[in-house]
Design a protein around this nucleic acid. Structure first.
Lengths: 167, 167
DNA sequence: ATAAACTTTCAATAATTATTGAAAGTTTAA
DNA sequence: TTAAACTTTCAATAATTATTGAAAGTTTAT
């Protein structure tokens, strides 16, 4: 496999994986492209490489900036804007985990809390609803906490954690 | 909030959360309904509660069975089939983690492995592609391993793990 | 064997989500 | 200023994904 083929494969795979971390295809592909680029890219560069429209590029770059994953960089002597992504995977993981937690997990925990705290009228079905949503709330909360904690350990967190947990 | 309102809220929230664990709305709602039901439900019951068609119910129940989350149960004296879901959240988490790993994460790791092992032609862009996809492969692999290990600890795994990792 | 009870399949359709492109908006240089 | 260079917005459209419903398939009881 040559450079170009490998690059295309990476970008398209990472793009379709977007759903796994909660973003759309174009967004994931732009991030992938920037991630393997040796220098910041302009909107023009991105449009051309990914064969997507200006509007699409603009909107998805904005979302990536909202996530805190992509930043504008000023290239001296150039009028247009250039973009670059966080290059450190650990930092990237930290940001993604934090954003997903804030955008999706916390709101769900809130709903589960509300639902599981309805008044117990003594009926079997109410007891079951309370019991099960409470269990779901607990595990969701625990996983969220754990994930964020893991991802925030600055040094070698993962290796150390895995080793500790190995049988 | 009364029982019915809480139940509806739970089912619709859990349904829209489906994307977070990689399944569609109807599938997640069926699972949610079964999860808080005190007894197994028939296809008819599910169709009626969720206001979805027979075909939709049938297909999504099948997918849930493929995931290993829902099972058919035979109710004596009844001709039709009844369904129930795994009621233990820990076991549910274990199954979901395992399936997502198998269906989505492992295939991605394979692609990242292929891409990161292209021949280094000495150019800067090739070096960057190799370096970055390798870093992504490593963290994806580590997170996958860790997630599965956590979720497979039978007893109190989460609490213990979190405590160990606390500063 | 057959017919009633039930489930599955799948082409058609609906609903949702992503993308385009051109007009409107903004910034910069002269 | 003003006009060129560039970016954003958003209504229209396309692409994707989910859902329906009726015909085909299967199982069970007699």
């Amino acid at each position: 496999m040559q450079y170009q083929e490998a690059k295309d494969k990476f970008i398209s795979t990472w793009g379709s994986l977007g759903s796994l971390w909660g973003i759309n295809k174009a967004m994931a592909q732009i991030q992938a492209l920037l991630f393997i680029s040796t220098k910041p890219l302009s909107m023009e560069d991105i449009m051309e490489e990914l064969k997507i429209s200006r509007g699409n590029t603009s909107m998805n770059l904005r979302q990536l900036m909202d996530w805190g994953i992509v930043t504008k960089v000023l290239v001296s002597g150039e009028r247009k804007e250039f973009f670059t992504t966080e290059k450190d995977v650990q930092e990237l993981a930290r940001t993604v985990a934090k954003e997903r937690s804030r955008r999706e997990i916390k709101p769900v925990i809130k709903v589960l809390e509300d639902v599981s705290s309805i008044k117990d009228d003594g009926s079997e079905k109410t007891k079951e609803l309370i019991k099960q949503t409470k269990a779901l709330k607990d595990i969701t909360h625990d996983l969220d906490t754990l994930m964020n904690r893991l991802v925030n350990q600055k040094q070698n967190w993962l290796t150390k954690s895995v080793l500790k947990l190995m049988k």
